[in-house]
């Protein structure tokens, strides 16, 4: 089960945000999408999760074209999207945010098992189970956002800048957690990041987006050692 994106074009009104994007995420692999602000990274994820309409192209997952469905049906196909900027609902408690992730699942005892797994992954969330989400620190919120996504038992995880606004030590923890989750559950992951080095370190391959186009693709190792990538995105 892989994600196949072919010739994807997305417009914001008259502006082309993404132009003719093609790439593959093989089953169980973590692919990093890097690029500057405005490169179209978030738009790409929002289109894949059904929040934004595409103008052209296909994105095939488990035989379904993700571009023709709605966001509320994608989660039932095993797609979970953690959108940019701590995607939790601050007015709800930690537990309610997690329950929200599993709200469409009919089998509530299975959902309870998943919740226990999420607490194993992020024990901090269990300590704060009844606190409202707006009392959490930035790192805890990001754990909650990822935990909420895990509650839907996804097979494809779309992560939008999970390191945004976190202290360096926390950034490492979050990247480690993502890497573990991906390996442990055999999840396919699309990881959008401005922290290119952090993302490429845990990814098997990467895609560089520039002004809405694919500028470069390769294995993480190839990209990390590429002089052009180093100069533009890795800060060497």
């Amino acid at each position: 089960m892989s994600l196949e994106v072919r010739n994807l074009t997305v417009n914001h009104g008259a502006i082309t945000a993404l132009s003719d994007i093609s790439f593959t995420v093989p089953e169980g692999e973590l692919v990093a999408i890097i690029g500057a602000n405005g490169a179209g990274k978030s738009t790409l994820l929002r289109t894949l999760s059904g929040l934004k309409d595409a103008s052209h192209g296909t994105a095939t997952w488990k035989g379904h074209n993700l571009l023709s469905g709605k966001a509320e049906t994608h989660v039932r196909q095993g797609v979970a999207h953690v959108s940019e900027g701590m995607s939790v609902i601050p007015e709800l408690t930690v537990e309610e945010n997690l329950d929200l992730g599993a709200i469409w699942r009919r089998n509530k005892s299975e959902a309870a098992t998943t919740k226990a797994e999420v607490f194993d992954l992020f024990p901090r969330l269990q300590e704060r189970i009844n606190q409202s989400a707006d009392t959490l620190s930035g790192g805890e919120r990001q754990m909650l956002a990822i935990g909420r996504a895990m509650m839907s038992k996804p097979q494809l995880l779309l992560l939008d800048e999970p390191s945004l606004g976190l202290a360096p030590l926390l950034v490492k923890q979050i990247f480690d957690a993502i890497s573990n989750i991906s390996r442990q559950y055999g999840l396919s992951v699309v990881l959008v990041e401005q922290n290119a080095m952090g993302a490429l370190k845990i990814a098997s391959s990467g895609i560089v987006l520039n002004l809405g186009r694919v500028a470069m693709t390769g294995t993480s190792q190839e990209l990390i050692s590429d002089p052009a990538v180093q100069a533009a995105y890795l800060g060497y």
């Binding site: 509320e72 039932r76 999207h81 609902i89 709800l92 309610e96 329950d99 992730g101 709200i103 469409w104």
Partner: peptide, 20 residues
């Protein structure tokens, strides 16, 4: 929970599979 989530954040509610 669906009613509250949809009120506070329609987008996150949709991502969670709620038919807002």
């Amino acid at each position: 929970l669906s009613l509250r989530a949809s009120a506070f954040s329609p987008e996150l509610a949709r991502l969670a599979g709620i038919r807002v």
